[in-house]
Amino acid sequence: MQLSREQLLRAYRQMKTIREFEERLHVEITTGEIAGFTHLYAGQEAVAVGVCEHLTDEDFIVSTHRGHGHCIAKGCDVKAMMKEIYGRRDGLGGGKGGSMHIADTTKGMLGANGIVGAGAPQAVGAAIATKLDGKGRVAVAFSGDGACNQGTTFEAMNMAVVLKVPAIFVFENNHYSEHTGVDYSVGTQRDIASRAEAFGMRVWRANGCDFFDSYEAMRELLEYVRAGNGPAAIEFDTERFFGHFEGDPQRYRGPGELERIRAERDCLVAFRNKVIPAGLIDGAALDQVDAEVVQLIDEAVREARAAEPPRPEDVLTNVYAEY
């Protein structure tokens, strides 16, 4: 599928925004101003954007502890996200959720989640609702190679097939479940997609370091699911450029591994190397996007630092849902 220049620029801007957001957080974490654990998404941008560029605000996603990229790709406000991570009252969650619990239901973003594998059953619940309302919406569960070993994920996939709901299971295989390599932890020879296939659903596989491959695979998958064929799954082979969490010494990495994947599997570099020689976008236009994104992230950090924290009386708000 040929994308227009505007679509290509938007996709690049989304990926670059995720990258700069995460690279800046990697620096800001060291100041001590940000509380709690933070798990960075840098390196996996092509997956989040390749998936979410096909979705609307009416479609649902459920994220993971490594959720900043999913939020940005789904259209969440970048400045409100930064305020949330800084624990500010004007953050998306009122400053009470932090990095691992960002949500924005107006964008169909049902929330990041610190529990590995917890997103899959939530997405199936949302998919049941979408099937009942008949509006053609879908629900996407993002998860990693670690979640593919969780019983909650197995139960969710089985239920999705039994009920034939429009649930999509996205597995981002970045080769490490926290500190454990996928070669050791996944018994099906690193092949996560085959596990989903065993439950009776169709599966796709894509290069998660290539936006175009990710985008096209997701396009095909969504056509299948939106046509009423039930759930589907997709495995993206990708890389994370930072540790499992900020402060992770990454002693499980091989010599030169980080340098190699940054040199050979950077989705932003791959994007430039395809669109510029093909004459689809010139380098100057992409450089302009880069500059605008850096300015946006600078503003987001500056405003987050200056924003007010939650008030004492806010501790009792948003504790229970009100109907």
Rank of each mutant, 00 (worst) to 15 (best):
Q7E: 15
L8I: 07
L8A: 06
L9F: 08
R10D: 14
E20R: 14
E22C: 05
H26L: 12
E28K: 12
T31V: 08
G32L: 02
E33I: 05
I34W: 01
A35D: 10
F37W: 03
F37M: 08
T38E: 07
H39L: 01
Y41N: 04
Q44D: 04
Q44F: 00
Q44N: 04
C52W: 03
D59H: 08
G69T: 03
G69Y: 01
I72W: 00
I72R: 10
K74I: 10
K74T: 04
K74Q: 06
M82K: 11
M82C: 02
Y86Q: 08
G97I: 01
G98R: 08
G98K: 12
M100E: 04
H101W: 01
A103Y: 15
A103L: 13
A103F: 09
G111K: 01
G111V: 02
I115P: 09
G119F: 00
A120H: 07
A126Y: 02
A126Q: 05
K131C: 10
L132A: 04
L132R: 12
G146K: 02
A147N: 03
C148H: 07
Q150D: 12
Q150P: 00
G151D: 11
A156L: 06
P166C: 08
I168N: 03
F171H: 13
F171S: 13
E178K: 05
E178F: 02
H179Y: 15
G181Y: 10
V182R: 00
Y184R: 15
S185E: 09
V186E: 09
T188W: 03
Q189A: 14
I192P: 05
A196R: 04
G200T: 05
M201R: 12
V203S: 07
N207L: 11
D210C: 11
D210M: 00
F212D: 01
Y215E: 09
Y215R: 15
E216Y: 09
E220H: 10
L221E: 00
E223A: 08
P231A: 12
T238R: 00
P249I: 07
Q250Y: 06
Q250W: 01
G254T: 06
L258Y: 03
R265T: 05
R265F: 14
C267A: 15
L268N: 03
A270I: 09
N273M: 10
P277Y: 13
P277N: 09
G279E: 05
A285D: 13
D287R: 10
Q288D: 15
V294P: 04
I297C: 03
D298P: 10
R302Q: 15
E303V: 10
E313L: 05
E322S: 14
